[in-house]
């Protein structure tokens, strides 16, 4: 097997996540799609670490995970706040960020 297959898998998963962000309207599902894209990029980082024979790629993937965790916390808090005021988690609502 060609180890580049890992990068191909990463590209496929990233594209699926991007398509999901374009198609889905539930803000939480859109968030999950973003998580999928972050995971795909992490897989690419791990593969690059293996390609170069250094652990730097894995450290970068680790930082991506930390930032993703922080992003999820803030993003879900925003979704909950919007749901409280709008009773909807749809990203189709116009003026969503206006109070």
């Amino acid at each position: 097997m060609n180890p580049t297959n890992y990068l191909v898998l990463s590209a496929i998963l990233f594209s699926i996540g991007a398509a999901g962000v374009l198609v889905r309207r539930n803000a939480i599902v859109v968030f999950m799609c973003i998580e999928l894209m972050l995971n795909a990029s992490n897989l690419a980082f791990v593969t690059f670490a293996r390609m170069n024979g250094t652990l730097d790629g894995q450290v970068v993937a680790f930082f991506v995970m930390v930032v993703a965790a922080a992003e999820v916390v803030v993003g879900l808090a925003i979704i909950v706040t919007i749901f409280r005021t709008r009773n909807s988690a749809s990203v189709d609502e116009p003026n969503l960020l206006r109070l």
């Binding site: 993703a68 965790a69 999820v72 979704i79 988690a89 749809s90």
Partner: peptide, 23 residues
């Protein structure tokens, strides 16, 4: 972290927000 914590947070918020028309 991901499967254990982040996804459980997602499911938790799904329970709070519930099902609405955006599904």
């Amino acid at each position: 972290v991901y499967t254990g914590a982040v996804m459980m947070l997602f499911v938790f918020v799904l329970m709070v927000v519930g099902v609405d028309a955006s599904d």
